[in-house]
């Protein structure tokens, strides 16, 4: 790298830009921290220690985990197909993978509701085999599956595209079956990317609100996710309770952000 610009301008623009980011991001977070610092610790614990809260956390984290797992299982073959095969319509499929990223969450919410609802195309199909999806935890899972689909595909696909062919060839020359090569050569190479995509999908699922609320049914202790519980506490002016839940959610985001950063650094190596 060449020597940095020694004039004042970059320092000035950095200062302005940083001030802006801090004003928008850090100041509101500080407000939450200060507000919660004035509340006795006992009250915070109390507001978190109820059956309703614990089942909301179980639901949010459990279903996100499940959806991220499903997205990893679906994402790996999708990434493989898009990276390795050529077939008519490949570009279209490739573009459609990004749809959940660009579709606003409220649209996804009512779209899934229409599709899996009692009169929807898939809703009636599932009803015939006695499964109700809309307004149950299964509906939440479907929504998280939708919003998380692109993450694994998009992290794994470039790795498959850039993978060193010679390793696979060596394996094949030495008499390994295709399946053996996949298990012992390809899969280990993809593991960091798979983990990164998995964590991203998980993080997204935990915080997701718009696409879930419409289809969830939102019954306390059954199908009420944490973000919804925060909203309902805010609506009943329970600021301490909502703040406590948000603190836990923020903490979880920090941990996942850290984890994803670590994984990405390992991927870059």
């Amino acid at each position: 790298m060449s020597s940095p610009d020694n004039s004042l301008t970059p320092h000035l623009t950095l200062g302005i830009g940083l001030t802006y980011v801090c004003l928008i991001v850090l100041v509101p977070m500080a407000a939450l921290a200060i507000r919660m610092a004035t509340v006795p610790f006992h009250d915070i614990v109390e507001s978190l220690n109820s059956v309703r809260v614990i089942s909301a956390f179980k639901l949010s984290f459990g279903l996100s985990l499940l959806a991220a797992l499903a997205n990893t299982l679906l994402g790996l073959p999708l990434a493989w197909v898009l990276a390795r095969y050529t077939f008519p319509g490949r570009k279209v499929i490739d573009a459609l993978i990004d749809m959940p990223f660009s579709l606003p969450t409220a649209v996804a919410g009512i779209a899934l509701c229409g599709l899996y609802g009692p009169e929807g195309w898939l809703g009636t199909a599932f009803e015939r085999i006695g499964v109700q999806i809309a307004y149950t935890p299964a509906g939440i899972f479907v929504a998280m599956l939708f919003v998380g689909l692109p993450f694994v595909v998009r992290t794994v696909q470039p790795i498959i595209t850039n993978m060193d062919f010679s390793l696979e060839e060596t394996g094949a020359c030495l008499g390994a079956s295709r399946w053996y090569v996949f298990r012992r050569v390809i899969l280990p190479t993809l593991r960091p990317a798979l983990l990164t995509g998995f964590s991203m999908a998980f993080a997204r699922g935990v915080g997701e609100y718009g696409s879930v609320v419409f289809i969830a049914g939102n019954i306390p202790e059954v199908s009420e996710i944490v973000p919804l519980l925060i909203v309902s506490r805010l609506e009943s002016y329970d600021f301490t309770g909502a703040g406590a839940l948000s603190l836990v959610m923020l903490l979880a985001s920090f941990v996942m952000l850290l984890l994803i950063n670590m994984l990405q650094r390992r991927m870059a190596q």
């Binding site: 100041v27 509101p28 977070m29 407000a31 939450l32 507000r35 969450t105 993080a203 935990v206 915080g207 997701e208 609100y209 718009g210 944490v226 973000p227 919804l228 925060i230 909203v231 805010l234 600021f239 909502a242 703040g243 948000s246 959610m249 923020l250 985001s253 996942m256 952000l257």
Partner: peptide, 14 residues
Amino acid sequence: SVSPVVVGLLFIML
């Protein structure tokens, strides 16, 4: 990475 609901709450707290 922060839940959108938490974002809204931050501004209410401020």
